[in-house]
Every structure is written in structure tokens, then in C-alpha cells.
Amino acid sequence: MEAAVNLSGAGVGDHRWTDSYKRTILRSRVDTTDLLSRALARLDPLPRVLVSASGMDYYPDSRDEVTEDSPRGSGFLSDVTRGWEAAADPAREAGIPVSHTRSGLILSPDGGVLKRLVPLIRLGLGGPVGSGRQWWSWITLHDHVRALTRLLDGDLPGAVNLTSPGPVEQREFMAALAGAAHRPAVLPVPGFAVRVGIGGFAEAVLASHRVVPRRLLDAGFTFDQPDLAVAAPVLMH
């Protein structure tokens, strides 16, 4: 086997965060990664690399810029990412380089957060969520796949931020997409309404993560869609 890619994990926004579903979020990541890591560690020869998913929620809720060297945050999703990454230890201890992809919001009109936002934007309801000043770090699906492919080279073990080099405040994010759809983006959604409407997942929606893909950039990776001025028209076609 040349390489292994692990993208396991139940969607954090697919259901309300009941205690049962929070266990599903955790176990679907940790248990699967642990099982795969132990299986890979027994192979001969070993894979050249394991690329294993993680998330930007590893970092603190903050307006400060963060890179791969920044400390871990707190809260449920941060705890999940810590366990998720640690579950790859059997592979790492066997000598397999492991890259943890701390991904931002992956944007595709066919799924994820954008699939939920597009209908609202087209109705003119794409205003700020909460304060609108929280930083959203994102990456298009196109560039995310390209970055995953780059990590298969096996020369970037450890945490790697898979985010665009152009994080923006949430209000700018919505305005850019609304502008590409030729719709207004003025009606705000108060933070309390988000918490009532989606429960625990509001932790992720209202959090601020200004994540920079320092290691990818230092390795010479170039983004085809590095900022929303380039990405928004493609995403809202």
C-alpha cells in the first residue's frame, strides 16, 4: 500500500447535539481512526503516509491568527479533534508518517455548510450570523482535494491546516456569496436564535477561527481559489 487516507466522521451539523449524537461524533472519528491505524501498523511494508482528517476546531475560539504551532482550545469539538489525532498514534509509533488535516469549512455547492446557506442567500436572507465578526476559515472542495493529494507525498507529517490563505469575517463571507448571487445580505440572525435553532452546533457556527495554512504555503503549495473574490462566483454559479 502506497498511502492511506482517513476522512471518517459523522457530520457535526447533521443532527442536534444530543448526548447520544455527541458520542456518535466522537466515536465515528476516534474508533475508526484507531482501528485503521492499528491495521496499517501491522502491514509489511508499511504505507508511505497516513493522511488523517482533523478540524480547525482544534484551535481556540479567538480573533487572533493561528497556525499549526498555536495551542489547543477548549470545548467539545476541540476535545474531539484531540482524541481524533491521538487515535493515529499506533500508526505513528510503527513508523508511518501521519499528516493531520485541520480543515476549515469545505465549500461545495453540492454539500456541507454551503448547501445549507445557498437557499437562504438566494432568498436574500444571507445576513450576518451572531455578531458577524467571527472569523471563518474556509477552503473550496477543489483546493481541499488538491491539498490532500499534495500530502500524499509524505513529507509533511504532523498538523497541516487545510484552509484558504484568505480567512474572512463571517459577515464578509456572506456578503461575498450574496454578491455573487446578486442578492442582498442584510438581515441578521441573532446569536440567541442560532442557539435555539440548532442547539450545541451553534458552538461551531458562532466560533471565530482565523486559521492560516502556514505549512502548506511554506511547502510551496499554491491555491487555485485563494480568496472569495475568486471562489464566490464559482460556488454560486
Rank of each mutant, 00 (worst) to 15 (best):
R102K: 05
V234L: 15
G132F: 04
D34N: 12
T149P: 15
L125R: 10
I96R: 03
P188V: 13
V168R: 05
W136R: 03
L148G: 07
A178P: 06
V211I: 14
G11V: 12
P128R: 04
G124Q: 03
D224C: 09
R63H: 08
G179N: 15
D14W: 15
R133G: 13
R183L: 15
E203W: 10
T149E: 15
D69Q: 14
R146Q: 14
T140Y: 05
A159K: 09
G55I: 04
R146T: 06
P128F: 03
V30R: 01
R195A: 06
V80S: 04
W84T: 00
P165G: 08
L148S: 09
G111E: 12
D143L: 02
K115Q: 10
L107V: 08
L228S: 05
L216C: 06
A207T: 08
V30H: 03
R72I: 10
V30L: 11
G95W: 06
L187W: 15
L36A: 03
S137Q: 00
R214D: 11
P167F: 02
D224E: 14
L46F: 07
P60F: 03
D79A: 11
L46Y: 03
K22P: 03
R146K: 13
T101C: 06
P167C: 02
L151D: 05
D34F: 10
G191T: 03
T32I: 15
L206W: 02
R48N: 11
P233K: 04
A176H: 05
V80Q: 00
A91V: 07
R42L: 07
A176Q: 04
D57I: 15
L120Y: 13
S8C: 14
S20H: 12
A4H: 09
T33E: 01
R63S: 14
E93P: 01
G104M: 00
M174Q: 07
E65M: 14
R215A: 15
T24L: 11
T222G: 08
P45Q: 13
R183S: 05
R82H: 08
V211C: 05
R16H: 09
H182V: 11
L187K: 12
A10Q: 08
A86M: 13
A185M: 08
R38S: 06
V30Y: 01
L216G: 01
A180C: 14
S74K: 12
P165C: 12
P184E: 11
V51M: 09
A4N: 04
E2T: 07
L120M: 10
G83I: 04
V51S: 00
D19A: 12
L125S: 07
A178S: 13
L162W: 04
R63N: 13
V51Q: 06
D69P: 12
A207F: 01
L217C: 11
I106Q: 02
D89K: 11
E85M: 06
R102Q: 04
L152N: 15
G13N: 08
V51E: 01
E93I: 13
V66N: 01
G124V: 05
L50Y: 02
P109H: 02
V234Y: 11
S108M: 02
V113T: 12
F76H: 04
G132E: 06
P190M: 11
M56R: 02
A204G: 05
L117R: 03
G200T: 01
E169S: 09
